[in-house]
């Protein structure tokens, strides 16, 4: 498998707060890397101790195994006053990094995988929403996404329809914007940063920028860990493990338009590490 265009993209490789002097070995696109403190500053090296470019943003250490074709994507909300920035930590999953992102873009599974939290039967309908590729930034965007959420917040009695927007800003990174229960009119930001270790193994680093002054930091971390680990057992049981880009291999419906756009965008950009191009 050639790493192709994905070699020149940015990837998360750890929490800034978690980097140590002695360092940690990891993988990126199948190649060994090392993350360590060099004179107090996080540094990353590839094979043969080759230094890799480093960015420190959104609580994480970012690197690029090739030559970055553009700067690390911007999440402007990260700098907004009043938001709490939450480092959720790592969760390793035996799945394609692209499958992990695709699942993050999906809402129709909420009633079955996140039962009574993000969705519940019989409120399973996915209404029409808008999806497109924003050519100026070359990102996939889904807007006007709505879904019935049985318990939107600790204070919320009964369910409400929650609004979502989704954004794919790098082949293995996505940001979702969600109605903020304590700050109606504002959007909470929940990001999924995926480190592709190999084509079928990834470290997932969720991160959030929330308007919530009440919940403890630990509560916020645990909520996101709960949600992601509920997804993990699904992600580890999809066949084939690689994300099929061949349209005949899996059957999308109108609810899957974000995933359809994501797959097309991956194909168009040659982002195929973790993908299956032709049915096996």
């Amino acid at each position: 498998m050639s790493v192709g265009a994905m070699k020149d993209q940015w990837y998360p490789v750890g929490l800034i707060s978690g980097v140590t002097e002695e360092g940690r070995d990891s993988l990126l696109l199948g190649e060994p890397i090392r993350i360590f403190l060099d004179g107090g500053t996080p540094a990353v090296t590839g094979e043969g101790e080759r230094p890799l470019p480093v960015e420190l943003r959104y609580g994480h250490v970012w690197t690029c195994p090739g030559t970055p074709t553009r700067p690390l994507f911007d999440i402007p909300e990260a700098d907004q006053l009043g938001r709490r920035l939450v480092d959720v930590g790592v969760c390793r999953v035996r799945c394609s990094p692209l499958r992990a992102v695709e699942n993050f873009l999906d809402i129709a599974h909420f009633p079955f995988v996140h039962t009574d939290i993000l969705g519940s039967e019989p409120h399973t309908e996915v209404t029409r929403y808008e999806v497109g590729i924003r050519e100026d930034v070359d990102e996939v965007w889904a807007t006007k996404v709505q879904f019935f959420q049985p318990q939107a917040a600790k204070s919320a009695e009964g369910g409400i329809t929650t609004d979502y927007m989704y954004r794919v800003c790098a082949p293995t990174c996505s940001v979702l914007y969600k109605t903020s229960p304590p700050m109606p009119g504002e959007w909470d930001v929940i990001a999924l940063f995926v480190q592709p270790l190999t084509e079928t193994l990834c470290d997932v680093w969720p991160w959030m920028a929330l308007y919530d002054d009440d919940a403890s930091m630990t509560d916020l971390i645990h909520f996101q860990q709960l949600i992601f680990v509920q997804d993990r057992s699904v992600l580890e049981n999809q066949l084939p493990a690689l994300l099929p880009l061949d349209p005949g291999m899996e059957i999308p419906t109108r609810a899957d338009l974000t995933s359809v756009a994501y797959r097309r965008w991956l194909k168009r950009n040659g982002f195929t590490y973790g993908a299956q191009l032709v049915a096996a």
Binding site: S233, V234, N237, Q238, L239, M249, E250, I251, P252, T253
Partner: peptide, 13 residues
Amino acid sequence: SDRCPHRGMRLSH
């Protein structure tokens, strides 16, 4: 076949 045609999830789950 242990595979949902939609997203390939194992139906035995």
